[in-house]
Amino acid sequence: MKKLLLLLLTMTTVLTVNAQIVTPQPSPFSKVEQKVGLTDVTLEYSRPNMRDRKIFGDLVPYGQVWRLGANQNTKITFSTDVKVSGTTLKAGTYAIYAIPNATAWDVIFYTDANNGGLPAEWDDSKVAVKVNAEIYPLPMNIETFTITFDDLTSNSGTLGILWEKVYVGVKIDVPTDDMVLASINNVMNATPTGNDYYNAAVYYLQEGKDIKQAKTWIDKAITMAGDKAQFWQLRQQSLIYAKAGDKAGAIAAAKKSLAASEEAGNGDYVKLNKDSLKEWGAM
């Protein structure tokens, strides 16, 4: 019995010694993953709050390098080469710093991403690109420091920085078009499927490329699908025909898409097709 009591007392002492108080971090860590075109972008940063403090020009002084957040330096990782302000950044991880000022910021992509905040010694040779970005005043305070991915297209996105009443944006261009065109070329020189023809045609339509080529590809896709052609495929065929100046062909395809979407009970495509048919004078 004495041995049991001694064991229980020892365990209690160990648990007491090892116990730790856990509290929330004042600047919580955030990890954001965003697909921009075909490029994977990962952002890692910590998010301080205003807490009734004056931020820019006070807590964050003007004219000095800032870690763009709190705690460890902010990191951004690209899965492909990208361009920022016309300068190519190779695939990999970069630290992002900023030099805030009253009317514009310098936003810096730094090749050494393993700093505990700011580098112990700043090295200009590690500045991959420095962008001068205009400030856009906001009508309200942003309490928590926030970095976003805005204005996403197939070929670009804007890294948005928001805090206090400030928004700063840095455009990042990605090589989607080169990658897609290379993929299309490789597949078309091999054995393309109906889906390959469809995807290539829609891409050409959306990106304003050779519409005659898009028309050839969409026709092949629909022919290969036969009576299994789906209403969304027929919808794209109608848009490609309209873009190519073949109004009669566009109307015919839209009517087929309308009938198929009504049968499928898809109200969105029913409306889209009816709107197009009205626009083209067929309803």
Rank of each mutant, 00 (worst) to 15 (best):
A91N: 09
L205E: 06
G281K: 07
G267L: 11
F78V: 03
V107E: 00
K126A: 13
V270A: 09
I161D: 01
V131W: 02
Q34C: 10
D177L: 10
T77M: 02
P26E: 06
M11R: 00
E33F: 04
A190C: 05
Y62L: 05
N189K: 12
A282M: 05
G226N: 03
M179V: 14
I240S: 03
G57M: 12
F145A: 00
S238E: 09
V60P: 08
A133R: 01
Y198C: 07
V166T: 15
K255R: 12
F56E: 08
T23A: 10
G86E: 06
Y203F: 12
I135Y: 00
T80I: 04
E279N: 13
L159V: 08
L38N: 13
T146K: 01
D268Y: 08
T88R: 04
K2C: 06
S238H: 03
D52N: 15
S154R: 12
L68T: 15
S30W: 00
D81L: 08
P119D: 07
E44K: 06
R51Q: 12
I99K: 04
M283K: 10
S156R: 10
I240L: 06
T193D: 08
T88S: 11
D81T: 02
V129L: 03
D268M: 11
A19H: 07
N199C: 08
A104C: 01
F78G: 10
E262R: 13
I135F: 00
G57Q: 11
Y97R: 07
P26N: 11
D219Q: 05
G245K: 07
Q72W: 03
Y203L: 11
Y197Q: 08
Y110I: 13
Y167M: 10
K165Y: 01
L5G: 06
T10M: 14
T223D: 12
P139T: 07
M50Y: 00
E279G: 13
D219C: 02
K247C: 11
K31F: 06
L5A: 15
D123Y: 03
V60G: 02
W232K: 09
Y197T: 02
T74Y: 05
W105R: 01
D40V: 06
N114K: 14
Y167R: 13
Q20M: 12
L59I: 12
I222F: 03
Q233K: 10
A201D: 02
S154D: 15
W217T: 09
W122N: 06
K228H: 08
L152D: 03
K31H: 10
I184M: 14
G267S: 14
G245A: 08
D219V: 07
N195K: 11
E44W: 03
L152M: 12
N18Q: 13
G265N: 09
V187M: 11
D58M: 08
F149A: 15
Q20V: 15
E134G: 06
G57S: 13
Y269S: 09
A128M: 07
